[in-house]
Design a protein around this nucleic acid. Structure first.
Length: 491
RNA sequence: GGGAGUGUAAUGUAGUGGUUAGCAUCCAAGCUUUGGAAGUUUGUUAUCGAAGGUUCAAAUCCUUCCACUCCUACCA
């Protein structure tokens, strides 16, 4: 018999609800997602288990972008300083976070011009766009690249959530009219819902960010917020209406049908895959470890033999037989190490493998297979000849079941407030406050500052999809409300 | 950016100025096991985060740097 070890240390030892930060740190280590021992602040090693899922996320995203008419390209990772400096607001926003390459060679020779390690690629791409875009026939012009970017972040870095180097996709589009650009922003938001909610099971809401909180250089910013474990929101993909703010300094022009030169209207969209991955594992995981959508799991099905003395070969053969049958359809692992079954269960649950198959002598006698789903722990006894059908069913439904669970949760996090006191209380209880506000233009900045100071939370903006609530007055100044906004603590 | 704390083996730790830095887990090998974290025997692994300094003597005291953790501020 296998005895119980009272203090397992290979598993998660803290509860996600009680101490989210410690839980997150533990899961990063124990599920072997990232290694921070590289010892450069904000730069972490992505280990295979995370990298495989991240690549699959990229793949899904890229397929969708392709489908929506974007073409891929690859830009250099450095931007000459003179280029970087062309759009004033953009520079103001990003300059403090830029890593500069300023010397080279063993003698430390100074470069004639400093090179920015791109913190984002507007100023790299749009220089080229001015060459590539000549006429209305070139429009709409939609490009994206999957790449790393670098930002000299402050102190607080966390694997996946915030690094000084992170992995994303950036899409940069040009249009003849502002209307088309606005349509693109809508398409970006639809893509975000499709990816984040349907594929990655992260509930989000899109907000039009207040003017004081927009992307440096943009006309308007629309950002998705996700609710994380400790009652705070996390900014996920954002899409920006750039108007002609960049096309003018970068000279991105086209000749219209009447032979007149016009500046393009531009948009950019930046889903940070590494952060989305962090949000996903943080949001979906539980005290046993990771929970992953079926398509993203590096291993989808693990087969575990139950070996009883004298019957080892029967069991091993059955396992091999099942493995062989499944390996071309799913990502399957046959865990044939010399270890007790329980220890294997815990390991693969920690890793978030969606489905476990157990094969023991008793099952073989009954011609059945035992399966256990990770996300709800549901155990099923499947007739051997019905296994194919069952797995097909699980593989189709698993992610949906997961999504259903997570979506319900989100609405319950919102609390409608009419007074500052109740808003403060709601924020303290880890809720998102929904309330009336005077405006999201610069004139309302004072009210927003008061919210930051008094509530310790931030105005996330105006909900982009259908707004259910209406308010007569601004929560802070009491003036007539022009909009309904949401307030939350953020990461 | 501001504050608080921590760095000893792959991991978690003991060691508060005086031999050869102790233990557990992991890892490796053997035997017995295996329906929710197996038992046992043996073995390998540490220039004590880095660089300076104080001292007859430093993991231990001092300085600087680096990294990590938590709170706060900022972003994707």
């Amino acid at each position: 018999m296998v005895k119980k070890n009272k203090t397992p240390i290979t598993g998660i030892t803290v509860s996600k609800d009680e101490d989210f930060s410690a839980w997150y740190t533990e899961i990063i280590n124990k599920a072997e997602l990232a290694d921070i021992r590289y010892n450069v602040k904000g730069f972490v090693v992505y280990r295979p288990w995370a990298t495989i899922s991240i690549k699959k996320m990229y793949q899904k995203y890229e397929e969708l972008l392709d489908k929506k008419g974007h073409l891929p390209l690859i830009m250099p990772s450095v931007i000459p300083e003179s280029n970087f400096m062309l759009e004033a607001d953009h520079v103001k926003g990003f300059a403090p976070e830029v890593f500069w390459v300023s010397e080279a060679g063993s003698e430390g020779e100074r470069l004639s011009e400093r090179l920015a390690l791109r913190p984002t690629s507007e100023t790299a791409l749009y220089k080229m766009y001015s060459y590539w875009i000549r006429s209305y026939n070139d429009l709409p012009f939609k490009r994206y690249q999957s790449c790393q970017v670098w930002r000299y972040e402050g102190k607080m870095t966390r694997p996946f959530f915030r690094g000084r180097e992170f992995h994303w996709i950036e899409a940069h589009n040009c249009f003849a009219t502002e209307e088309e650009a606005i349509e693109q922003v809508k398409e970006d938001m639809e893509m975000t819902y499709k990816m984040l909610q349907d594929e990655f099971c992260i509930p989000i809401i899109f907000f039009e960010r207040p003017q004081w909180d927009k992307f440096s250089g943009a006309v308007n910013t629309y950002a998705a917020d996700a609710l994380m474990g400790s009652g705070k929101v996390l900014q996920l993909p954002s899409t920006h209406l750039l108007g002609q703010n960049f096309s003018k300094p970068f000279n991105v022009k086209f000749t219209d049908k009447d032979g007149e030169e016009r500046f393009c209207y531009q948009t950019c969209y930046g889903p940070a895959i590494s952060r989305i991955y962090g949000a996903m594992i943080a949001y979906l995981g539980d005290d046993k470890g990771l929970i992953l959508p079926f398509d993203l799991a590096p291993i989808q099905i693990v087969i575990i033999p139950i070996l009883i003395k004298g019957k080892e070969e029967i069991v091993m053969n059955k396992c091999r037989e099942i493995y062989k049958k499944l390996k071309d359809i799913y990502r399957v692992k046959f865990d044939d190490l010399e270890e007790s079954p329980g220890s294997k269960y815990y390991r693969w649950e920690l890793k978030g493998v969606p489905l476990r198959i157990e094969v023991g002598p008793r099952d073989i006698e009954k011609k059945q297979i035992v399966t256990v789903k990770r996300h709800d722990g549901e155990k099923a006894f499947i007739k051997e000849n019905e296994l194919d059908k069952y797995l097909e069913d699980v593989s189709k439904k698993y992610t949906n079941e997961l999504k259903k669970k997570t979506l319900l949760d989100f609405e319950s996090q919102i609390e409608v407030c009419y007074e500052q006191d109740s808003a403060k209380e709601a924020i303290e209880n880890g809720k998102i406050v929904c309330c009336g506000f005077c405006s999201i233009d610069m004139e309302a900045y004072q009210c927003a500052e008061k919210i930051e100071k008094d509530l310790g939370a931030f105005v996330r903006g105006k909900r982009v999809d259908h707004e259910k609530h209406e308010f007569a007055t601004c929560l802070i100044c009491g003036k007539p409300a022009t909009c309904t906004i949401y307030i939350a603590k953020s990461y």
